[in-house]
Amino acid sequence: MKWSDFSKLIKLRLTFLVVFSASISFLIGSKVNGEINWINWVKLIIGGFLVTAAANCFNEIIEKDLDKLMKRTMDRPIPAGRMTTGQALVIGLFMGIMGTYLLGQLNLTTGYLSVFSILLYAFAYTPLKRKSPIAVFVGAIPGALPPLIGYVAAHEKIDGIALILFGIQFIWQFVHFWAIAWVLDDDYKLAGFRLLPSGKRNLTSAIVTFAFAIILVPVSILPTWYGFGGYYVGGVSLICSLLFLYQAFILLRTLEISDAKKLMYGSFIYLPVVQLMFLFDFIGKVK
């Protein structure tokens, strides 16, 4: 099996973003405890990578026939015929079991959350994509679990910081995913996916996307509001959120694919900047 096929099977870039999010939250949780266990950090990264890769693998197995219909997915190893469903299933099960085992070694809550994330993403979100835009709401839950899992891996208690980390990524998911869905709507329709809020690139979908971008503004400054972060993270998060909101407003005004693409790229920048700022500001506050 070629590395290129494996990377497509596990959606390498998506998997990397998920692990990055979890690792940042682990460091935040570690500072709550007062020290960082770097061995556990490595376990989280490896376990998180394997669990996320497994979920993506199961997703591609389930959607193999639909992937043949879309230009952006037809070259994935299963629909392209370079890998059998059985081979992918063995790889996915191995990664899922090993990843869950590693995460479970950190604590049971982390292990349970990782299993829940796989099941919800692969077996609830995936089949819902063809039935209703509600799939995005379902998918936003496993999509926002990585920072919660990372935090709980270091600090087993689900406290206010854990919920805020989850909440920021949960709300961000909607704007992020609807921007992607707007750009790829023609391709998605070839497979029967209904992912935009109204099912179409229209004013209703743009209004809903803009509304969630508005919600993200106050949610993003919750760390400062509740005293977990200082004014630096609050200021940077507010600026990033307002810029993100402006991009959503431009899409609302123009309804153009090019502006949805700018919003999509903005979403890729927004989350790591806000999470890293939370980490640096939190570390400084703890000291």
Rank of each mutant, 00 (worst) to 15 (best):
I161A: 14
F116A: 15
A154M: 11
L148M: 11
I168W: 07
E156W: 13
G143R: 08
Q173L: 04
D75S: 14
T84Q: 04
M98Y: 13
L93I: 15
P79K: 02
P197K: 02
P197V: 03
G86T: 12
F94A: 15
S198I: 01
W172E: 01
W182R: 06
F94S: 15
A191R: 05
G86Q: 07
I161G: 09
L184M: 15
D186K: 15
R76V: 02
I118R: 13
I158C: 07
F170K: 05
W182G: 05
T85P: 00
K189G: 03
G150V: 03
F170T: 00
Y112T: 05
E156V: 12
H176L: 06
Q173H: 14
F177L: 08
F94N: 08
P147R: 00
P197S: 04
A191I: 07
L89D: 09
V136W: 04
L165Q: 01
I97N: 07
L145M: 13
A80S: 15
L148K: 03
L89N: 12
L184R: 14
L120V: 13
F116K: 08
L128V: 07
G192R: 12
L163R: 11
G150Q: 09
G96W: 10
L93Q: 11
F137G: 00
Y112R: 12
L108Q: 14
H155E: 12
V138E: 12
R194D: 03
I91Y: 13
F193G: 05
Y112N: 11
V136Y: 04
V90M: 12
K129N: 07
A179L: 12
A122N: 11
G96S: 15
L102I: 07
K131P: 00
P147N: 00
V136K: 03
T85N: 11
L184F: 15
L102A: 10
A179F: 11
I149H: 02
L113C: 04
F166C: 04
L145T: 06
I180M: 14
A179M: 09
F137A: 15
M74V: 13
S132L: 03
I91D: 06
A140T: 02
W182M: 07
S198D: 02
A144I: 02
V183N: 11
Y188K: 06
S198A: 01
V90K: 14
R82N: 12
Y112P: 00
D159Q: 02
L119S: 10
T85G: 15
D185T: 06
D159V: 01
Q169V: 08
L113S: 04
A162L: 01
T100A: 14
A135N: 08
M98V: 15
H155Q: 13
D159M: 00
I180A: 08
T100C: 14
L184P: 00
P147K: 00
F177G: 03
S114G: 07
R76T: 04
A80R: 13
P127G: 08
K129E: 05
H155G: 06
S117V: 01
E156G: 15
T126R: 07
F170I: 01
N107V: 02
A144V: 02
I141E: 04
Q87G: 14
A154C: 12
A153M: 08
A88R: 11
T84N: 02
W178S: 03
G92M: 14
V138R: 13
Y125D: 00
G96Y: 11
I141Y: 04
G99A: 10
V90Q: 09
A181N: 07
